[in-house]
């Protein structure tokens, strides 16, 4: 089945059309002005700590400082260790790697987490936590076991992080999953390099270059005997 993906990119918006046999099947439109921030990763600066609320306000370069609650601070926790209060974890002026988990709305700033997750097509990468998870939506116990076994084998032994297997991975070929692992690890490596030199507050990665274009592009697979997929991009 021949499939073409047409991408029309302008500074204002990115439009993606998925074509099948010359007929448009799907449209994705994303506007720069209305793009959500969820998933963006920043190096922020802690501007205020409120022990009473067990929260902190972080400057990530947005109009309003963003909100970080102690429950969203990721800490390697050993069994039995009591949770530390926020004033013992952060200090004012500190730079901190954060990810937006909720868009700013009205007068409320964005909500942040310090646990970074990078979503690929089939996997979600959790670089700070060694954990293998399988989406609850994959119901078949046999499929879950087979995916768990596959991913455990594919993840390099020295990998400090973990992965969550998404529903898209159901029935996926090992090679495709391996590609996703490489890709996500590379994004994280690039991000860390960038984080070392960036002066806070700085945006490190946008959730998706264009959520749609990114997802679609990452879905392009190698042409098989009976299929060919091409993507064309245009700037005008």
């Amino acid at each position: 089945m021949p499939e073409d993906i047409l991408i029309n990119f302008t500074p204002q918006e990115t439009r993606v059309a998925v074509m099948h046999q010359g007929v448009v099947q799907e449209l994705h439109i994303e506007r720069t002005a209305s793009r959500g921030l969820v998933g963006n990763v920043y190096v922020g600066r802690v501007v205020r700590i409120l022990p009473g609320m067990q929260s902190a306000f972080i400057d990530v370069g947005l109009e309003r400082t963003a909100f970080l609650h102690v429950a969203d601070i990721w800490e390697p926790r050993h069994n039995g260790d009591p949770a530390r209060p926020i004033e013992r974890i952060l200090f004012e002026g500190q730079s901190q790697l954060v990810q937006v988990i909720k868009d700013p709305i009205g007068s409320k700033g964005a909500r942040l987490s310090t646990q970074i997750s990078v979503a690929g097509r089939m996997l979600v990468y959790l670089p700070q936590e060694k954990h293998i998870g399988i989406s609850q939506r994959i119901e078949s116990e046999i499929e879950r076991e087979s995916l768990r076994e596959k991913i455990t084998r594919l993840v390099p032994a020295d990998e400090p992080g973990g992965f969550i297997v998404r529903t898209m991975a159901e029935g996926a070929m090992e090679e495709e999953m391996a590609n996703d692992i490489d890709y996500l690890r590379k994004i994280w490596r690039d991000l860390q390099m960038h984080a070392k030199t960036a002066a806070p507050p700085a945006l490190l990665i946008r959730s998706c270059p264009s959520a749609s274009a990114y997802c679609v592009i990452s879905s392009i697979r190698k042409p098989r005997a009976s299929s060919s997929t091409r993507a064309r991009t245009s700037r005008n």
């Binding site: 448009v24 449209l27 997929t229 993507a231 991009t233 245009s234």
Partner: peptide, 25 residues
Amino acid sequence: TVTPLLNHYIGDRPLFDLHGVEDEI
């Protein structure tokens, strides 16, 4: 791995016009 599949369209007529996408929208 997908780079060879990408094709930078440089024609004069807008891509979405050429393939009837504007009409479909």
